[in-house]
Amino acid sequence: MDILNAFIALANFVLIPAISYGSQLALGALGVTLIYGILRFSNFAHGDTMAFGAMCTILVTWLFQSWGISFGPLPTALLALPFGILGAIAMLLATDRVIYKFYREQKAKPVIFLIVSLGVMFVMNGVVRFIIGPDDQRFSDGARFIMKARDFKQMTGLSEGLAFKTSQGITIVTAVVVVALLFWFLNKTRTGKSMRAYSDNEDLALLSGINPERVVTITWIIVAALATIAGVLYGLDKGFKPFTYFQLLLPIFASAIVGGLGNPLGAIAGGFVIAFSEVTITYAFKKVLGYLMPEGLEPSSLVQLLSTDYKFAVSFTILIIVLLFRPTGLFKGKSL
């Protein structure tokens, strides 16, 4: 019984949060890695793209809520999501046409693109703060829990409860669907394959008649969708605040690099590696160990390896270890 309780506690506080956080990071890292693979630069504006997409979704959600439209037990934000994605697509295509395209034609170095993306980051950050403000915004509605801790206890008779938030359930389901769709697109459709071909060998792709501008446009569209979905899921789960999205840049980049920049499969793996490490290392294992250890030997301290404020340190340390021992990432990404 104690082992079961320990497992439930672990699932409740580590497994479920890590899986949903990992899904959010994976979606974010997929966006970064796609840009890296196709446009060949590290996009520092990605966190703010997520914030922008999420903001568009929130605005439409509020509109729907004011009209009395709801999605039953699910958050209204899911209905607004397609509109948010459209907003983000418009934004990214506009920045591409007005800003990035010029440097593409100049065949500028990746580092110049990176600095340009810093400028875009400032602009997007300003736009988001200007429209919705720098503060926390609540926009989730519908049922808060799929399973409440108390109900679980009554159902199973265990002393540990297992809570499963709606936002976590939606995150996991959405992430699975989105990733499946993305891989279907990249591996089975002509357009998807042409994107992979372009990422693999630009000159040969040109020789084969693949239109680079079309590939770039489609990439931005997909990235806008991925970023918005990641941003909305994160917002539903943990609340929307523009600055947190900027801070997500570090774990997202860490995920993409750990998995291997330019490799979509790697981005997903990297997202979960980072999320699980962050959650595990900052979780206080006192409760779990309390169930497992023989009587009298229960730990008196929290048994928390690092305080939660150091979660950045976790992604950073993993990043450094990977950079030291395997600079191309766990799955082989582009080294140049």
Binding site: K193, S194, R196, N201
Partner: peptide, 17 residues
């Protein structure tokens, strides 16, 4: 060749136009 793509995908890309 497109090293990360399968043989058949390479041929498909050859026929892109």
């Amino acid at each position: 060749i497109f090293t990360s793509m399968t043989v058949e995908e390479n041929l498909e890309m050859g026929a892109f136009i």
